[in-house]
Amino acid sequence: MSEAEMQETYSLFPGCIAKNMYPSIEKSTYTVFEKIGVKLLNHRYSCCPAPGVFRGYDRKTHMTLGVRNIVMARQDNVDVMTICNGCYGSLWEANEMFRKSKENQDFVNEKLAKIGLSYDGKTNVLHFVDVLHKHLEDVRNAKEVDLGLKVAVHYGCHYLRPSEKHPDINPESPHVIEDVVEALGCESVDFKNKLSCCGAGGGVWSGAEELGLRVLDEKLKNVRDSGADCIVNICPFCHMHLDQSQGKLEERYKIPVLHLSELTGLAFGIRPKHLAMHTHLISTRDIEKKIKKSKKGSDSEE
């Protein structure tokens, strides 16, 4: 096998929100993974489909459409890497439902056969934070600036729960995102109900907006009390709710929200302008200024 073929390669599953609403997340993902030596391929994916709505309608439809996505990567014999908890949850569950039941396998393959596809259950669905975590040493080496930020880590529900997804992570005290942000020179601050929901999932973001805002308000209060400079998340759907819905609350929190890929990109020296950070509704200016300061500090030390 040639060297190129042996390079660690995944199919990037960008998900609707990253590619269609926050391209900064998609862009920084490409840059970050290139810098740590991981190759990403593109495939013709649909929406995962969004679990909050579609799994609530009909599990079998959700599973079948999820598996159709996985088949795209299977054809190139690579695993799927998601950058969103929703996509991760959807595809992971579709894969598990398929793998665990002969009845489901027959159902899905009968449907897929009509459009010329089939699946054997052999592809794995990964979350990008796990891949980053595996490459912590490469992350440290690729880092150009110690960010020096205090960050409030937001896991989001569907990375941690149901906990069958990660048998080796304690869902009540995980230390995955924390390890990555610490490698980037950030301090991860503790806050009340850190592992709780942002309020957007389960179709609540669109279907019961006020409830979603109330849950968000509680979350942001706790983050503000922690004194963090920003929230760091691993899910564009949480990201969107945390960023966009802040403006709908009575309380003006103005807490910047960054996806972990963006934070990592900034630490790897990508200029904020090249990430279109202005697509965020809550300005990330203060964060960028702080990073500049840290950079100057570390440059003058050398």
């Binding site: 679990p51 909050g52 609530g56 529900c157 569907h158 729960r161 149901p162 906990s163 869902p171 709780s196 929901c197 309020g199 957007a200 999932g201 389960g202 179709g203 609540v204 279907g207 019961a208 409830l211 979603g212 849950v215």
Partner: peptide, 12 residues
Amino acid sequence: LWLCTTCYNCQE
């Protein structure tokens, strides 16, 4: 039924 965010806290 439609007010659950499917956060899985209860199930865990």
